[in-house]
């Protein structure tokens, strides 16, 4: 999944490293349609650029 859809660093254009997922319970109140019913919150991916250190997040795919 992450290997086929890498985030690209907006600062330097490098492929970012997908290193974490975070479950956001507060976001569930704001975006109830985005809640993963098995996990009970909105799952976000966390990516970091190995070249410049820029961090990026997106909703888990």
């Amino acid at each position: 999944m992450s290997g086929t859809n890498k985030m690209i660093c907006p600062d330097c254009g490098s492929e970012m490293n997908y290193h974490a997922e975070k479950l956001d319970y507060t976001a569930a109140c704001i975006e109830p349609e985005a809640v993963d019913p098995d996990l009970g919150g909105v799952l976000a991916e966390v990516h970091t650029c190995p070249r410049c250190g820029k961090m990026g997040t997106r909703r888990a795919q």
């Binding site: 992450s2 490293n17 997908y18 290193h19 974490a20 997922e21 970091t48 650029c49 190995p50 250190g53 961090m55």
Partner: peptide
């Protein structure tokens, strides 16, 4: 942790 964030995929 910086090394991990930047180089170690989950």
């Amino acid at each position: 942790l910086r090394y991990g964030r930047e180089n170690v995929p989950r």
